[in-house]
């Protein structure tokens, strides 16, 4: 029972990060029908930029509170990622808006390689240890169930980002314009909406979310490196498909569910397989789910549209 509760807590932490990243996939899909496979790399850029910023501030402004460095890292990583997201849309995707569906997909993969290679040139091939600015000593929250402050921060910040995004999309003029553009670009432009601007904003917002997720992942695992975006990106994509791609609530539900399945699976896989597989095989669950959803319920848990375009 304690194992189950502990894995549920772990699952919520991982799941909340997946959810934040999945929102970026689903927003772009909703508005362009495009799966932005470079989204995971934006997360990586966020983590590495934050690392450099934190290292820099620690050397020029020593003796600050660790949380201050953490916040500074986020505040530098977010605008950098927003600029990266905007540049990707403007240079790689905009001119392919009306191209056959395979072209933007291949371009997305190309952008992904490009960002990884650039990061490798800038930050090198080595794993960098990411400063543990938030406490990592576990705290017992219920009998036998532990959570570290960095995990709590992750869940809290992720929840805040999700609430903020939902308010933005459902309650503001800009959010309404985003939903209108997602449904019909042409009619939205007839309402005076500059749809190119709305699409760019969608990439910018998604990239800001990815930056935060990247810093959270690096803080949780204590490492950052040029290829760290690949797996979380793929898992968040799975979460978006699981929830129903194009659907914001779906991305959040999908992220949490995926995190839970993965954590619970990792906690029990050894028992289930009689020691044949251990928790390092936890990635099996994410892709098992992706396969099952695509075969039996391609519209996802909450989605009404089929992911018919790459």
């Amino acid at each position: 029972m304690q194992t189950l509760l502990q894995q549920i807590v772990n699952g919520l932490v991982v799941g909340s990060v997946y959810a934040v990243v999945a929102l970026g996939y689903t927003m772009v899909y909703g508005i362009l029908g495009l799966i932005n496979f470079a989204h995971g790399e934006v997360l990586m850029v966020g983590a590495l930029v934050a690392l450099s910023a934190i290292t820099f501030f620690q050397s020029v402004l020593p003796d600050l509170h660790p949380i201050a460095y953490f916040v500074m890292g986020l505040l530098v990583a977010m605008p950098v990622c927003m600029a990266v997201g905007y540049t990707i849309e403007r240079t790689a995707y905009r001119r392919l808006r009306n191209a056959p569906r395979l072209a933007p997909l291949i371009t997305a993969i190309g952008v992904s390689f490009l960002l990884q290679t650039l990061a490798m040139i800038i930050w090198g091939r080595n794993y960098h240890s990411f400063p543990q600015l938030i406490q990592t000593a576990p705290i017992e929250i219920v009998a036998g169930v532990f959570m570290t402050p960095v995990q709590m921060t992750t869940v809290g910040v992720s929840a805040a980002m999700m609430i903020g995004l939902v308010i933005l999309v459902t309650r503001t003029n800009m959010g309404r314009a985003m939903r209108a553009t997602a449904e019909n670009h042409r009619v939205a432009s007839l309402m005076g909406v500059d749809t190119n601007r709305i699409i760019a904003l969608t990439f910018i917002i998604g990239s800001a979310l990815a930056a935060v997720a990247g810093v959270m992942i690096a803080s949780n695992y204590g490492v950052a490196h040029y290829s760290m975006g690949f797996l979380p990106g793929l898992k968040a994509f799975t979460a978006a498909v699981l929830g129903g791609i194009g659907n914001l609530a779906g991305a959040m539900v999908g992220g949490i569910v995926l995190g839970l399945v993965e954590a619970i699976g990792a906690g029990y896989i050894e028992t289930w397989t009689g020691g044949w597989l251990n928790s390092s095989y936890q990635d099996i669950f994410a892709f098992l789910i992706l396969g099952i959803v695509l075969i039996f319920r391609p519209t996802g848990l909450l989605g009404e549209r089929v992911a018919d375009r790459a």
Binding site: N173, R176, A177, R179, A180, E183, N184, V187, A188, M191, G192, V193
Partner: peptide
Amino acid sequence: FTRLTVEENLRMGAY
């Protein structure tokens, strides 16, 4: 905009 409410549709006119 079929997924927006009637009021949201009207307000899009005043965007």
